[in-house]
Design a protein around this nucleic acid. Sequence first.
DNA 1: CATCTTCGTTGGATCGATTCAAATTTTTGC
DNA 2: GCAAAAATTTGAATCGATCCAACGAAGATG
Lengths: 360, 360
Amino acid sequence: MASSTEGNTRPVRLADIARAAGVSHGTASNVFSRPEIVREEVRERVRAAAEAMGYAGPDPKGRLLRAGKVNAIGVATTEPLSYFFDDPFARTMMAGISEACDATGAGIALVSAGNEEKLAWNIQSALVDGFILFCIEGGSRLVELTRERKLPFVALELGFDDDTVSAIGVDNVAGARLAAQHLAELGHRRFAVLALPFADDSTGLVSPERIRTAVYTGTRDRLVGYFEALSRFGVDTAKVPVYETENDEASTRAGLETIFASAEPPTAILAMSDRMAMIAIEWLAARGMAVPDDVSIVGFDGVPDAALCDPPLSTVAQPIAEIGRRAARTILDFDGTVRRETLGVELVVRASSGPPPKTA
Amino acid sequence: MASSTEGNTRPVRLADIARAAGVSHGTASNVFSRPEIVREEVRERVRAAAEAMGYAGPDPKGRLLRAGKVNAIGVATTEPLSYFFDDPFARTMMAGISEACDATGAGIALVSAGNEEKLAWNIQSALVDGFILFCIEGGSRLVELTRERKLPFVALELGFDDDTVSAIGVDNVAGARLAAQHLAELGHRRFAVLALPFADDSTGLVSPERIRTAVYTGTRDRLVGYFEALSRFGVDTAKVPVYETENDEASTRAGLETIFASAEPPTAILAMSDRMAMIAIEWLAARGMAVPDDVSIVGFDGVPDAALCDPPLSTVAQPIAEIGRRAARTILDFDGTVRRETLGVELVVRASSGPPPKTA
DNA sequence: CATCTTCGTTGGATCGATTCAAATTTTTGC
DNA sequence: GCAAAAATTTGAATCGATCCAACGAAGATG
């Protein structure tokens, strides 16, 4: 029964063990890190001393300073920490990241904060070898903050034109084209777009000006893809309402109110996220509009939930977990180069899209 | 622009900045950690030197060693890392933990590993101020490993009688009693129990012997609660089949096969987790048995999904997020004492439980 | 018996910062 | 103009380990 329950006494250090066992600290260190090079008798003596003094083993804090590598990657976002466990997109992404980390034995540190000041501090002081950045809202700021840390990092979602930043994302133009083409081929001609943010801190119907000056080029690219496909089917894209949301319930509902207040409401909605698409399905159901009989919807992302909602959502599926896996590997095998990867997407047709109503 | 893109050159240290600015390290350090006590002129000089040399700010590795506190808490499990993002119970718990961490600005480090050896290493070397242990399978081993680290830790799920271990959990006996009583009051007299593990590495119908020698006393307590309530209604608990699973799909289905192969199949199932309950609902549906018309089911946990499944699951709801919040606070405000908290549970009646079929 | 290996051990240097008592400079009060 | 008080700055000590060149002691070789 060693007195291991003590709490306020100064913790035992490796040097204490070495002294107690009558060896140098070098040897004591070897007992724990490379036991095979220490003579058995000495090894046991040191181990016994450690045991007797209640030594907890080499403190990683000390080791870290010497070793340099933390063996953990940080995942940062401007959302609250719970975002990682609530949001389906984030969760799928984290599953991919986890997989890559599990495979190499690396840990994951979640980084976030309520306000900007704390965020900056948390990024400054995170004990990690590199960062994966969830660039949702305020993504550009997050990149700035992280860049100052001078560690490898990779941005998710290719939200930036900035070629000095490693990023992994999908071909937004192609994906959007697929979605719009699918609906147009079904016969739709009256569309509305629920858009992700083009820049921070604004929602509402967007002007061509705002599209041109978009900070989040991923959003712009998706819109470009939508419009490209629609144009080919003779749709006048200038008349297609594009409502910018914050990808949350409140602003999406507001967008739907606006869109359906029109004299000529759309028969098809192009949503830039499954989240918005699913909110739309619910909103329409509550107002007695049937999906897809009255209104068709195609989402974007391909989160697992999209297959489970009612009706199951047609969507442009990103290889979310694969993006996560690659992001993690980019940090884990960092070679000093900037890496920008664009993965392909796939149209998944489910029950939320069908021909437009005949009366239309 | 500064040559900040260099990679292989030795990183700049605080001491380099100090030398360049012609001040001592002490002062240079103060410029970053307590700028207000440094004369403005000197402060600017040091900042300029830092800027010019591409200094990334004080390295947390160095600070850590001095400061002692990491300001992060580790959450460990024997499951793969993706468990944190997949499992509904874990996710709800993590949301609670996140909330407490967000509030104090602490970070979260996820700790896990494929095999036992790596797990041990990862726990040894995790840079955290304390641990929250998800004691699922192999929980006792996890506690042993963590104890050696001599950091504060708290076990979730009160799985141990060991009073030297801080733990937070619910009143399993009371909760189980609630569930069984509910079904008995509806008129059920033929029961079966889908049980969580009593100890590691075994599944199947359990003997009284195994119950008595249970390692996971939480499981035993739930069973005790079930049996207590059932006895009061005149049910011979010795005849109630108790099938121990690993809380996964395979073993739960095996349990159901066994249970329903009986000559007198149960009209009510007491499941020790919502996970098993939901698997049971699916299994029964696939075999043409209606819930609750043919068989009633009551789960345990109260995960969000339980409200969403079909039919919505009656269950004993734990304050999962609150447990997480308290666990996090136990580590964050650690005072050296062992803290064992037991929270209350609540029976939530939904559509999966009803009166037994009249023909029975 | 001298020499060369091999094996273990030693102790100083280092990782990158923070802290604090003491030294120094500046300001204030009269 | 000078002493006392206040504001800054210094530099050594410290946090807890790992690494490595050098060294001593056995054992092998000629």
